[in-house]
Amino acid sequence: MRYFAAAAEVAGREEETFAVDSATVGALQDDLVARYGSGMTRVLRNGSFLVDGVVVRDRARPLGRQVDVLPPFAGG
């Protein structure tokens, strides 16, 4: 996992490695909220994940070996 911006602040780190029970975006979301609480809920509410170079939000989507946690985009 790599964490960016608000996600890194909530997690207190920029990366870590862990195993998830089921390798889907949804399972990872639940795991992250269990680990980091309401701050992570706030990040993920309108956030997304980068899996194999693609931005994903679908809970059923399978995970890759590396996943980035992306808070809501705020460019411009």
């Binding site: 931005v55 985009f73 705020a74």
Partner: peptide, 10 residues
């Protein structure tokens, strides 16, 4: 750009 580019601001 605002919707798809991963940029954040504090």
């Amino acid at each position: 750009i605002k919707a798809t580019v991963p940029i954040w601001k504090r």
